[in-house]
């Protein structure tokens, strides 16, 4: 065949592109189930009208508590509210034995990154959604995918393997911190975030 060589070369390129853009992400990330499903919408919707801060609260010393403890859940869910399987699991497996729920955290950062929520939320008045997306209106938790090499959630890199975010809130890498600080004319010395 006259163009066999170039065709094979092109085939190699195409093969690599297919593997790199489609097979590689599937191999790189693995899905892990959350211990139970959580419906944010039912908490923040009209029926309950809860705000983010009511569960994801700040401690008296200004530190952010992050994911609420089981004691916080127990304030309302000491007994099952409704008949869903998730509700039953929550009360029976976690609230009653006072055992913390081993949530897999989408936004977990390494220990050397120091992110004070109080400064960003209270002082800079950045809304939760600007970084975490419209979690508050979702009726189920997204699939938790973990990077097999780094061990961090796929949400840190962003769902698009190219690293180009599909939504403004996607990705929690350092370049996003730096970009946001630059846009707001904030200082960005190493020790601001890396203590």
């Amino acid at each position: 065949m006259r163009f066999k060589g170039p065709m094979l070369f092109l085939a190699g390129i195409l093969l690599a592109l297919c593997i790199g853009w489609f097979a590689f992400p599937m191999a790189l990330y693995k899905s892990e189930p959350q211990p139970l499903q959580f419906n944010h919408a039912i908490h923040t919707g009209e029926q309950n009208s809860m705000t983010c801060e009511m569960c994801h609260e700040f401690a008296a010393d200004g530190t952010f508590k992050g994911i609420p403890s089981i004691a916080k859940c127990a304030e309302c869910h000491s007994a099952p509210i409704g008949t869903t399987q998730n509700e039953k699991t929550l009360v029976e497996q976690y609230v009653t034995p006072q055992k913390e729920i081993p949530w897999k955290v989408y936004s977990r950062q390494p220990d050397n990154a120091y992110f004070p929520h109080a400064v960003h939320v209270k002082k800079a008045e950045i809304k939760c959604e600007e970084c975490h997306g419209p979690h508050g209106s979702s009726d189920h938790l997204p699939v938790y995918q973990v990077n097999r090499i780094s061990g961090y959630s796929r949400d840190i890199w962003g769902h698009n393997i190219s690293g180009i975010p599909s939504h403004p809130w996607e990705g929690m890498k350092m370049d996003r911190c730096v970009r946001c600080h630059a846009e707001r004319h904030r200082d960005d010395s190493c020790l601001d975030c890396h203590k």
Binding site: G12, A16, G20, S162
Partner: peptide, 12 residues
């Protein structure tokens, strides 16, 4: 060779 070149244009 094509695969190597192609790989450079993927996230791998």
């Amino acid at each position: 060779g094509g695969s190597v070149l192609g790989t450079l244009f993927t996230p791998i």
